[in-house]
Amino acid sequence: MSRARGILERVWPPLVVLALGVVAWEFYSRLSGIGNAVLPPPSRVVQSGWADHASLWDNTLPTLREVLIGFAVSLVFAFVVSVAIDASGIARRSLMPVLIGSQTIPLIVLAPLVVIWFGFGLTPKILLVALVTFFPIVVGLVEGYASSDRDAITLLRTMGARWPTTFRLVRLPAALPGFFTGLRIAITYAVVAAIFAEYAGAEFGLGVYMQGAKASFRTDLVLAAVVVSALLTLVLFAATYVVQALVIPWYAESKRVPQ
């Protein structure tokens, strides 16, 4: 009861800000004579988007698929790499700097490159999503392992446990809150990355849809696609909280207990 109210109290302030912005935008584009090709009012964006919803939906599904598969690939690799880094000092010293260095390559450069290397199919999109989401997930996991309680690790060692056991019983569970934080950061990049990859060359997807709409001066449809991609990210973002509550219920609970 009080939890639902807590969520409500956190939800309404941004909604009010958002609503005010939308109202201001509506008035501005109607009254300033700026023209629908430059800035259509939100009411028109919604109308046109709805009128074209079949096509929008058909282009959302491929993007969603790219995001989910890319994410799955990223998760598997991130986990394997994080385990290697945790298990071995050599892996940590050799991999971490390379990973951090890799983050300096901008997405805009990467997108055309993966298309050149892997063509216009699903592969370059998956790859780009995976590349972009990989780093925050690895960092979330590695820092999560490092945040394990020292006494807990020492305790297991005094019981005769070696790394595999301490990893399974302490380091991995202790890393899960950090992992979910990394996951949320990654998810905000994932949809953008997929759309970028589609920009660089694709048959379907929100990126393709936006390009088509832009080419025919349908700014209202470009904006409708923007809204859809934002909603997609929000839904995925919210989903991480649901999964988190299922996987590590103890985390939120232990923070709610006063002490």
């Binding site: 309680d149 305790l155 005094t158 019981m159 005769g160 019983l169 302490v170 569970p173 590590i248 103890w250």
Partner: peptide, 24 residues
């Protein structure tokens, strides 16, 4: 050994925490 901090694992119930001794 019993550490100065109790080092109970929050992801385990009391029973599972005690079981850790038997397990490991």
């Amino acid at each position: 050994w019993m550490p100065q901090s109790d080092a109970l694992f929050p992801w385990r119930t009391v029973e599972q925490n005690i079981a850790l001794g038997f397990e490991v």
